[in-house]
């Protein structure tokens, strides 16, 4: 048994070396064009102070880019949570016995998936932010809240003056991602063998019991990989709300670029920050998958 699963030793072949050489050459040429062709003056030393700054009391504070990163993280977490809730409900609608619910679920999914996200952003932003937020009185609430509530809001969501825009952006991203999560959940539930449903029915389990104890636990295990992919997409897609001036990472990058003209340094830094977020999430999910597989094996 042991011999059969021994992994092959990685070996560098001639072809690998050639490919590596070509890639290095292309990257080198791009660097050369930027430096020589565009007469670009690299100035990496300017970047760190936009990540962190030292305030008047000598404490380290997050500056423009890190603030943007935190906003992206907050936005992604809330959007993911909301999208999961909406997606789960719509997913159940998609497989419901009732034709009306199925149609409703289907319409939601097709409408969202077949519209450019940018268009959705504008529609939701001007409708949700322009019409619903004033009705709910979000701005008034945020402005008139006590000091401690305001700092709590700033930590969890956004500073009071951005709150209503932040909520609109979160809802927009959430609805957009929810359409995809709906399909993941529908496919996951439908992938469970029919026999599992039969067994639940034969034992007299109610719909809720069947879902809670038998179907969903098996579904979650199966949909974890695509769901994680969707969560990572949420982080990436959140960049689009920069068009409605949410101060998230991408928007802050544009501001910084406009102010300093450090085009390449700025966008490379932002790329790295996004990568840190998404790659660490992928690795975490990979671990979780291995753990779940072991715990049921």
């Amino acid at each position: 048994m042991k011999g059969a699963i021994l992994r092959k030793k990685p070996r560098l072949t001639l072809l690998d070396a050639v490919i590596m050489l070509v890639v290095t050459a292309i990257l080198g040429y791009i660097g050369y064009r930027i430096t020589v062709g565009l007469h670009y003056k690299w100035n990496w030393s300017a970047i760190p102070r936009y990540l962190f700054r030292i305030d008047e009391n000598g404490n380290w504070k997050a500056n423009l880019l890190m603030q943007g990163l935190f906003t992206t993280i907050r936005l992604s977490i809330w959007a993911t949570l909301l999208a999961t809730i909406i997606g789960t409900i719509a997913g159940f609608f998609r497989i419901s016995k009732s034709l009306f619910k199925r149609l409703l679920g289907r319409t939601f999914v097709e409408l969202i998936r077949n519209t450019p996200p940018l268009v959705l952003i504008f529609i939701f932003y001007f409708f949700v932010s322009g019409q619903i937020m004033p009705i709910l009185g979000v701005d008034d609430f945020a402005r008139n809240a006590s000091e401690s509530t305001q700092s709590m809001m700033t930590f969890l969501f956004a500073p009071p003056r951005f709150l209503s825009a932040f909520i609109s952006a979160t809802v927009t991203v959430a609805i957009f991602e929810a359409a995809y999560i709906t399909e993941i959940i529908r496919a996951g539930i439908q992938s469970i063998e029919k026999g599992q449903f039969d067994a639940c029915h034969a034992l007299g389990l109610s719909w809720k019991q069947k879902m809670q104890y038998v179907i969903l636990p098996q579904t979650i295990q199966r949909i974890l990989p695509p769901l994680a992919g969707q969560f990572i997409s949420t982080i990436k897609d959140s960049a689009i709300v920069s068009v409605i001036s949410i101060p998230e990472l991408c928007f802050q990058g544009m501001e910084l670029m406009a102010a300093t003209y450090l085009t390449f340094e700025c966008w490379i830094t932002i790329t790295v920050l996004y990568l840190i977020l998404t790659l660490s999430l992928s690795l975490a999910v990979e671990r979780l998958e291995i753990f779940m597989r072991r715990s049921t094996a």
Binding site: G195, Q196, D198, A199, A202, G204, L205, Q209, V214, Q218
Partner: peptide, 29 residues
């Protein structure tokens, strides 16, 4: 359904539960 038990060709045990939990589940719920 409470009065009628059924056994299937493909067993249809719940794969994510132990044998004990498979048999306990409906008794408890």
């Amino acid at each position: 359904r409470k009065e009628v038990g059924m056994v299937f060709q493909q067993f249809n045990l719940f794969p994510h539960m132990t044998v004990r939990d498979n048999i306990n589940l409906a008794q408890r719920l």
